[in-house]
Design a protein around this nucleic acid. Structure first.
Length: 257
DNA sequence: TGGGTGACGCTCC
DNA sequence: GGGAGCGCCACCC
């Protein structure tokens, strides 16, 4: 991180009076200075202007809500008990802006305060490509806890870095898009923007082809290459397996536990 | 520490 | 097709 203690001290001298006037930020400042303050920047995103925070271990928080920088600094301090200062790291903000514009996420996410299960879930979700979706149950399976689909939902609900860890790409096993913290309708629009055929998937989240005997998630890159005349839509994996199809080795669809 | 709480998923009707 | 009821798991008081 490029934000020096001197810079932080200058920030406090310049803006500290206003910020500290309404709340005692002394302990917060001491703690933050002790292990390097967090830095933030803003970037345009499909959810509106996002405030993005990163620390020495990577991106740790992103939110579209605050109205002003001052509101955001106060909100962050009250929520996390840490100081956050404007970033001087242009490379980081360019990287995040690129992700918001649709490029593949190649940035470290700070998961140090997460449980091992939460960490595995976040890592699995991070690997879902743009334009594709996967069910909660699949994420649970990939995270090594096949029956924990409901717990996956809990992790998604508390995703500190929306869009960067693309929780909007996790949908229900029946093909419906399911819930979303920023409003389920936003989730649908985000997916459509990424090229996901949302209505089609709601009807048949799995697609097989008799030419290979393989069944895929409908948005798997292999499923998209199946010719129209060979497409065999399925509402569930168990139906596809019953019909004699075996799971694709790329997207690894699973019958729900 | 044990009961309450979900961005889930299945069965039954 | 869709809602109710219940099971499930991890996490949080």
């Amino acid at each position: 991180m490029n934000v020096s203690d001197e810079r932080i001290a200058a920030m406090l001298r310049e803006a500290g009076e206003d910020i500290t006037a309404k709340k005692d930020f002394g302990p917060l400042v001491e703690r933050s200075l002790a292990d390097g303050a967090d830095a933030f920047f803003t970037a345009g995103s499909p959810l509106g202007t996002m405030y993005v925070v990163f620390g020495p271990r990577g991106v740790k928080y992103a939110t579209p809500h605050p109205a002003s920088e001052e509101d955001f600094v106060r909100h962050y301090g009250e929520t996390f008990g840490r100081l956050v200062v404007p970033s001087e790291d242009d490379a980081m903000s360019e990287k995040i802006s690129a992700i918001f514009e649709g490029e593949k996420a190649e940035v470290a996410v700070d998961l140090s305060d997460k449980t091992p299960f939460q960490r595995r879930v976040m890592e699995v979700v991070s690997r879902i490509p743009r334009g594709e979706v996967r069910p909660y149950g699949w994420v649970a399976e990939e995270a090594g806890a096949p029956r924990a689909s409901r717990a996956v939902g809990s992790v998604m609900a508390k995703n500190p870095v929306p869009l960067i860890v693309p929780c909007h790409r996790v949908i229900r096993n029946d093909g419906k898009t399911g819930n979303y913290g920023f409003d389920p309708e936003r989730k649908v629009r985000l997916l459509e923007r990424e090229g996901v055929p949302v209505e089609e998937i709601a009807k048949a989240p799995y697609v097989a082809t008799p030419t290979t005997g393989i069944v895929c998630h409908a948005t798997c890159r292999n499923a998209r290459r199946i010719k129209r005349e060979n497409r065999r839509p399925f509402r569930s994996m168990s139906a596809a397996v019953d019909a004699g199809f075996r799971p694709c080795k790329v997207c690894r669809p699973v019958a729900a536990a």
